[in-house]
Design a protein around this nucleic acid. Structure first.
Length: 130
DNA sequence: TAACTGACTCGGC
DNA sequence: AGCCGAGCCAGTT
């Protein structure tokens, strides 16, 4: 596990996110995702951008792919693409798991898209104000 | 070892 | 307004 990208997240560390001895991009992603408030959602790009690699939104998705086996648990269902679509639903135990989890948190879904995405949107680079 | 693959985005046409 | 290509980079083949 390279630390190349993780080094960029020094800001995250200094911003009082749970301290750890080793930092990797994946772990940084998990930390940020865990900070997403219940009932809110964020996007891959926003998280990538917050970590300083805004062009690597795909890596955030990659991280989510492995997030299911990470502890403490990562609320991967709160991360959708920039349009509010549940593009990652197929990576959950069942294709409907993601939607069910979000509904349980008070987020309405229609056609695999978050209703009122704009008002539910949670941007780490703003909310966490680096 | 090189090539391919994404739970993404953005810019250009 | 929608489609296409490029950039991103860790992990898999």
């Amino acid at each position: 596990m390279s630390r190349k990208v993780g080094d960029i997240s020094k800001r995250v560390r200094e911003n009082s996110i749970a301290p750890k001895k080793e930092y990797t991009f994946f772990e940084d992603v998990y930390e940020v995702v865990r900070l997403i408030p219940k009932g809110r959602v964020s996007s891959y790009g926003a998280i990538a951008s917050y970590l300083g690699t805004k062009l690597s939104a795909r890596m955030v998705g990659w991280a989510m792919n492995a997030a299911h086996q990470v502890h403490p648990k990562v609320p991967a269902q709160r991360v959708v693409n920039r349009n509010g679509m549940l593009t990652g639903k197929n990576h959950f135990s069942t294709p409907t798991t993601m939607e069910e989890l979000l509904k349980k948190e008070g987020i309405e879904i229609k056609n695999d898209t978050v209703i009122n995405f704009k008002t539910k949107y949670w941007d780490p680079s703003k909310e966490l104000a680096i």
